[in-house]
């Protein structure tokens, strides 16, 4: 694991009107590392991710990207830095095929007309670089793909544009056992490509199997940011999620909501 974080969020605060959603939250994401972001519903995971993605700009705090302080005020800022978020609803057009979806909004053209050949080629290269082997043809319509394959396409969309940080919002929530396994492998491959991967998940087994680090949020605070080791257990993570602490890890003082 490299020592300097690619993306570092520190002392971030976010309020929606009277509701203080994020309290001095810190998060570090390293290149080539999968960082799981866990926490109960309403703990602030989604808000934190949306702040990083520029959908909800932060009220105070700093975001450092590749050693430089940056401001992310809108989604365009985030994608310009190379930060992509794959949301749970995937945002794919089912009536279009894989190539058309991957290049949507950024189509390659040649003399004003679409350059299908190059786009097809680059789609194959991208999927091959992720070792995706379950897709029969890049000209398949997304409506004919399984849930896992759709997740793959959505992730490939982030990879195609050389993203440096890819955050996945519950990528396996709707998947069966075999497909979950397939997506988990894909998450590891993203990290092997040197991408800083964020993973929001409610499945502790997945988190332990796939992640290098786990950041636990509890009532809008970052309760713990720990490395996953052999001793990291399901129970420990659940305890952190539900009470904000586990043994000497986590928030020690009482939290008043």
């Amino acid at each position: 694991m490299s020592q300097t974080p690619l993306l570092e969020v520190s002392k971030v605060n976010k309020r929606f009107g009277p509701v203080h959603v994020l309290h001095d939250v810190d998060l570090k994401m390293y290149p080539g590392t999968v960082t799981a972001l866990i926490g109960d519903n309403g703990a602030g995971k989604s808000t934190l991710v949306k702040s990083i993605a520029g959908i909800h700009p932060i009220d105070s705090g700093t975001i450092t990207f590749d050693g430089e302080a940056v401001t992310i005020d809108n989604p365009k800022d985030a994608s310009a830095l190379g930060i992509e978020v794959v949301y749970q609803d995937l945002a794919l057009c089912e009536n279009l095929d894989i190539v058309q979806n991957l290049f949507l909004g950024r189509e390659l053209t040649e003399r004003g007309l679409l350059d299908e050949k190059t786009m097809e080629q680059r789609t194959r290269e991208t999927l091959a670089s992720l070792s995706v082997r379950t897709i029969k043809s890049v000209r398949q319509r997304v409506s004919s793909l399984s849930g896992g394959q759709r997740q793959t396409v959505a992730i490939a969309k982030a990879v195609l544009w050389d993203s440096k940080v890819v955050i996945l919002d519950e990528p396996t929530a709707a998947l069966g056992v075999a497909q979950t396994e397939q997506v988990n492998k894909l998450v590891r491959r993203l990290a092997e490509k040197g991408i800083a991967v964020g993973l929001i998940s409610h499945n502790m087994n997945d988190v332990i199997a796939v992640s290098d680090r786990v950041a636990v949020m509890y009532l809008g605070r970052m309760a713990a940011d720990i490395e996953v080791t052999e001793t990291t257990s399901n129970e420990q993570l659940v305890e952190l999620i539900t009470s904000g602490r586990s043994g000497d890890v986590g928030i020690q003082e009482e939290v008043n909501q």
Binding site: D89, A91, C93, L104, G105, R106
Partner: peptide, 18 residues
């Protein structure tokens, strides 16, 4: 292409910058 995309999933098209 964008016409078909908006017809298929306007939200996805919006997020793709259309």
């Amino acid at each position: 292409r964008h016409l078909y995309a908006v017809g298929g999933n306007p939200e996805a098209a919006r997020r793709a910058g259309i």
